[in-house]
């Protein structure tokens, strides 16, 4: 599935109301390590197809979302299930670790 651009405007629709798990990567353009997380997230989206949603949140453009989820460190990846933050990964992770978090 395509990697979605998640914003304050579409968060409710795409994440809170989603009936499949959603993986969200919180990042900023100035954060070097975030650039290494990005292809891993793209790869997960490709591999998992329609079974999960994958999205990215630019924390500079969406400060409220970053606040709401208490993001104080990036990259942070959160897995949402039934609209709730189920698992949080702080810092760069490899694909396996994030996929394991889905189980």
């Amino acid at each position: 599935m395509a990697v979605l651009k998640i914003t304050q405007e579409n968060f409710e629709e795409e994440v809170s109301k989603s009936n499949i798990p959603v993986i969200i990567d919180f990042y900023a353009d100035w954060c070097g390590p975030c650039k290494m997380m990005s292809p891993i997230i793209d790869n997960i989206a490709e591999e998992l197809g329609e079974s999960v949603k994958v999205g990215k949140v630019n924390i500079d453009d969406n400060k409220n979302l970053a606040m709401q989820f208490g993001i104080m460190s990036i990259p942070t990846v959160i897995i949402f299930k039934e609209g709730k933050a189920e698992k949080t990964f702080v810092g760069l992770r490899d694909k396996e670790e994030i996929l394991n978090g889905l189980k």
Partner: peptide, 16 residues
Amino acid sequence: FEGKGVSYCTICDGFF
């Protein structure tokens, strides 16, 4: 508190 105020990366998290 990792990710909740404890950080190992000044260039990633200083901004917060």
